[in-house]
Design a protein around this nucleic acid. Structure first.
Length: 415
RNA sequence: GUGCCCAUAGCUCAGUUGGUUAGAGCGCCUGGUUGUGGUCCAGGAGGUCGCCGGUUCAAAUCCGGUUGGGCACCCCA
């Protein structure tokens, strides 16, 4: 058998899990304060849940989905993101009379891509979705939550909030048409990547890194000219709401979304500390999504954050993760071992971190205690047992004292 | 899917213009201590140099291929 993990997947050992956990728990706790309750949706859905909502031309659908047929012949896809799944759950649950609804989630996502720094085929995201609030204050609340989370993770100063508006449907359709017309007249100067984007997602050309493209982009029409007053008013209110909370941002007209159902606010918190994958949290408003999926038209706004990326940043911004140090119980002989196993059970029941090794002589067990960073070792051999005593060793100072066995639980609970 | 870089001990890495037995630090094991860890001292185990083929009297070293990994493009978290 092959003993290596599938390309783009990794095993998360306890140290990795601790790194993830502090990101997830910080986010979950803060989300709870904002009234976002946690939701878990399945890691796979019917393929159409993603295919329909993400659009037929998006990269996610055309080349990144893990799709297979199950034994019943159903087309199944491992979720590449969770907004569609949460929206599906909202529709399935017939929750349209419970609005507004606020959800937080954390879990694995799957995209078939070439792995690189901050990018894997199975990765993990946290995210929030707010359904049923068509007002700019919904966008502001969701962005504020993200900003405050980055603050709690000590990385707000390392991230820049990029903001843009995609306008409403009409604004975007007319702008899109204008862009296609403009770029079509400059086809010869466009890169092959951008020629492909001309059909799929012309807005993307605006963000091209190709030098020749950049020159063409300079002459391209600006979105501002195509925004309806309703759309520009909406965006202005979002900006004002952020100003009122002293949440700083930069306007980035090149920030776009590939997916059709996005509208109005698009935002990304970006850092330069993680190489090319700088987006640490990204999101926006998606008023069209739930309607596309067949639910009663319901506005939505939310974001997702990459746990691996956030954890990497947290390594730089938060203090080193510390773990609790155990008390090591060290028996010598079968009778003492039996006694200490019972004692370990009691101490653990009292909430103490207790280690008792499964085998080894005194020296071996002391080595283990040292390696685990035990603060104290409690040694019980034949001598101690007969005298109804235990030897308590302070592992740091090396000093030892004898205490009575019946005092052990009380004594250790004071440590 | 495309491009660039990399692959030597469990880990991090050295290895000279191709030359005899491939090294270091850390880690691991044993002893110095019949019931005392971490420090210290002495000793030890561990490598078909990713894999396949080629050049050569001779390959870890040069060439081709292949697999795996990393980074970047595309796109995104």
């Amino acid at each position: 058998m092959s003993v290596r993990p599938v390309r783009g997947t990794v095993d998360l050992f306890p140290d990795d899990i601790r790194r993830h956990r502090r990101v997830i728990e910080t986010a979950r706790d803060l989300a709870e304060l904002y009234g976002f309750g946690e939701i878990q949706t399945p890691v796979f859905e019917f393929t159409e849940v993603f295919a329909r909502t993400l659009g037929d031309v998006s990269d996610v659908v055309t080349k990144e989905m893990y799709t297979f047929e199950d034994r019943g012949g159903e087309k199944i896809t491992l979720r590449p993101e969770n907004t569609a799944g949460v929206a599906r759950a909202y529709i399935s649950g017939k929750l349209q009379n419970e609005l507004p609804l606020k959800y937080f989630y954390a879990g694995p996502m799957f995209r078939y891509e070439r792995p690189q720094k901050g990018r894997q085929r199975q990765f993990h995201q946290i995210g929030v979705e707010l359904f049923g609030v068509p007002f700019p204050s919904g966008d502001v609340e969701v962005i504020a939550l993200a900003a405050q989370l980055l603050d709690k993770l000590g990385m707000r100063d390392h991230c820049v909030l990029n903001l843009n508006t995609l306008g409403d449907i009409e604004s975007r359709e007319t702008y899109r048409a204008a862009l296609v017309e403009y770029f079509s007249s400059h086809k010869t100067r466009l890169s092959s990547d951008s020629l492909a984007r001309l059909d799929k997602n012309p807005l993307r050309i605006l963000d091209s890194k190709d030098e020749s493209d950049k020159k063409v982009v300079e002459g391209a029409p600006s979105f501002n000219e195509f925004l309806t007053t309703m759309a520009s008013d909406f965006f202005a209110e979002v900006l004002q709401g952020l100003d009122e909370l002293d949440i700083s941002y930069v306007l980035n007209p090149r920030l776009v979304r590939g997916l059709d159902y996005y509208c109005h606010t698009a935002f990304e918190f970006v850092t330069d500390a993680l190489g090319a994958q700088g987006t640490v949290i990204g999101g926006g408003r998606y008023d069209g999504l739930i309607g596309i999926m067949g639910g009663a038209s319901t506005p939505g706004v939310g974001w997702a954050g990459g746990i691996e990326r956030l954890a990497m940043l947290a390594d730089q911004t938060l203090p080193e993760i510390t773990t609790s140090k155990p008390i090591s119980l060290i028996p010598i002989g079968a009778a003492a071992e039996k006694k200490l196993k019972q004692l370990a059970y009691v101490l653990r029941g009292n909430g103490q971190h207790v280690d008792i090794s499964f085998s080894g002589n005194l020296k071996r067990r002391m080595q283990r205690a040292g390696k685990l960073g035990a603060r104290f070792a409690l040694i019980v051999g034949e001598d101690e047992l007969h005298a109804n005593k235990a030897t308590l060793r302070d592992m740091e100072s090396g000093s030892q004292e004898e205490i009575r066995l019946q005092d052990v639980v009380k004594r250790l609970s004071d440590l």
